[in-house]
Design a protein around this nucleic acid. Structure first.
Lengths: 356, 356
DNA sequence: CGGGGCCGCGCAATCGATTCCGTGCGGTCG
DNA sequence: CGACCGCACGGAATCGATTGCGCGGCCCCG
């Protein structure tokens, strides 16, 4: 591997350093370093030094400072994928809040692969991040437990662990799942399928658990053949819905543990000649922006709030505090995809009976 | 601001450094530094040093190395928003390719705000990134021109500039716009509206330009009142479509310069009592995954390819090469939202004129 | 068998900022 | 009036890795 050519010295004039300021003011570098940490008004020297710094456009070198202090004024965020709209929203909010507080954010994405998770966390640590925001925790807790041994402040966001022992900012997914069950039952549905999320996601498990609890409370059965994994993305949702339709052609409603899976399910329904929202009620989870355009009923979780609270908790922990956990309450947004109550008789089964 | 308490030394044992290895092997740190750069097999010393390094789990400190070498083995990517699905896809691909080549990726998001753009680029530079991938260039070129003076290799991706003088990996947006025009005209539409993207985005401008050219070639007029800005997100698309419908109730088709704007337009159509795809043909741009679920006709751009080529070009430039530009060809994906040819008579206008 | 050249090693300087330590000054209190 | 306290400053070490320089050993060739 060749080294790159040296940068053109004319186009990139030497960045000013403390030494530059020292020569310019006649003060020692250490004096200048200290003066810059004080506010400009606190002191005559401070005023002088700040003025000189502004004049020549001095910016302290975070790399050098990191080396000495073992801190970076940066926080790391680990996501499973930034193409997941919810993770992206959380990232944007984390970034906004962190920058407001003088911190940078380094992101890494892991595709939920355990080996990648460890590798990317180590990479963030080697960049000396002062704390971690983990948005891709797995329910079994192995990953989060490992994080907790690293000696770095951290907060889980969006997904907790089964043990519930880690500082985390999450949504009450159980409550969300229950809302959906109650809504569909109230619409007259009894043959309701579940397109579940991945088992390693505590959020997905919670949604399914709450949903089952809600159905059970209403006396509606959820036989195993009406449950199918639907993943987190459009493609897996479509595949899962296809399987469900083949196995249970008489279903009248489906709850998808993620909006993206619901998008895929919608596509599968249409491909099967069924009208989403009329023949099969569809409900998603997260209420991403496209959900409204699709007229999809969904459970709204305050995602910006997740990012905001997690960041504030982490910054607090970095300053020496104890991070506070939160569990936010979701809200059901009913739209066309589930607004039509079930008619007296069930819809015609797929490609077998003629339209009535 | 309080300093955080020192990390618990028991839970975080001192990270091994070159010194640790030096004491362990009896070799000088400089010898070890060099030996680690050779492959383990090349040399007896190299073998020994690599073995010792693996044994104690040595990881070189990129912060210290950066300070000395003024390089970081990291590249910076600037996006306008990672909540934009296309930007997120590009980021994921950049990350994948870069990590494969031993580079980290630092991201920043700017909301297309010029002041934020400069600030975030400077921040990336202060972290000593070896090169920049710019996904939020503005058409006027001021930003890109500034980037080019920084003495750091860079590549524009997704959005170029009007001047076309910067290394860039983009889609042939003009061609995409033309495809849409030809398709809608072939379906019998003559009252076609344009929901345009932001003027500062070269990609949006190209799509609109190609679209106008295609209409003109077919002899179809596009009066000014049938053009409205639609932004890049669902909300702005909905607002723009609402305005269009009020101004031109007799339109039969609309081209949205972004899928998200198209989602918003769909929602506005539905709110106006019109059936998207039947009463008003709708076409988007980018073919994001949700487009298929919405049954939305769209122009597919090879987004992963954009990220891949941009990263390879940048890495090449970092190694001293001259980055190669690319312009990729898009493809029209026809779906239900524009598959119904225009019937003989136009659809009934919105709540104003009776059906003719 | 001797000389020259190549290569790997150790030494020490370096990147830029922070921080511990000692000194000298000015002010205060006994 | 003298001793003491506090404070700002300069000096120097430090974080961990890289790299120019010089030395010594080994190999090859004459």
């Amino acid at each position: 591997m060749l080294d790159p050519p040296p940068l053109d010295p004319a186009s990139a004039p030497a960045r000013p350093t403390l030494r530059t300021l020292s020569e310019r003011t006649g003060l020692h570098v250490s004096t200048i370093s200290r003066a810059l940490r004080r506010s400009a008004e606190s002191d005559e020297t401070a005023t002088l030094v700040h003025a000189a710094a502004n004049e020549i456009g001095y910016r302290r070198d975070p790399v050098a400072a990191s080396l000495r202090t073992q801190r970076s004024h940066a926080i790391g965020m680990v996501a499973h994928a930034l193409t997941d709209f919810v993770q992206a929203i959380i990232y944007e909010e984390v970034d906004r809040i962190a920058v407001d507080h003088g911190y940078d954010v380094l992101v890494a994405s892991t595709r939920d692969d355990p080996a990648t998770q460890r590798q990317r966390v180590e990479l963030l640590l080697s960049r000396r991040v002062d704390g971690l925001i983990i948005a891709d925790a797995h329910d079994d807790g192995a990953y989060a437990d490992w994080i907790s041994t690293l000696g770095v402040p951290y907060v889980l966001v969006m997904r907790g662990t089964a043990s519930g022992t880690h500082p985390s900012v999450i949504v009450d997914d159980d409550a969300g799942g229950r809302l959906v069950a109650e809504h569909l039952v109230a619409q007259g549905h009894t043959r309701i399928a579940l397109l579940s999320g991945p088992e390693y996601s505590g959020a997905s498990r919670g949604r399914a658990r709450g949903f089952r609890a809600g159905l059970a409370a209403a006396g509606v059965e959820l036989p195993d053949e009406m449950v199918e994994p639907g993943g987190l993305v459009v493609e897996t949702g479509r595949a899962g819905m296809g399987t469900l339709l083949r196995r249970c052609p008489d279903l009248t409603a489906v709850f998808c543990a993620s909006d993206f899976a619901a998008f895929g399910a919608t596509s599968a329904l249409r491909a099967a000649g069924l009208r989403p929202g009329l023949d099969v009620a569809t409900v998603g989870f997260n209420d991403v922006l496209a959900a409204e355009a699709l007229d999809l009923t969904s459970v709204r979780a305050p995602q910006e709030e997740l990012g905001r609270l997690a960041t504030l908790a982490l910054l607090d922990a970095i300053e020496g505090g104890t991070p506070q956990s939160h569990r936010l309450t979701p809200q059901l947004i009913v739209r066309g995809s589930s607004a039509t109550p079930l008619p007296a008789q069930p819809h015609p089964a797929v490609a077998t009976a003629p339209a009535s």
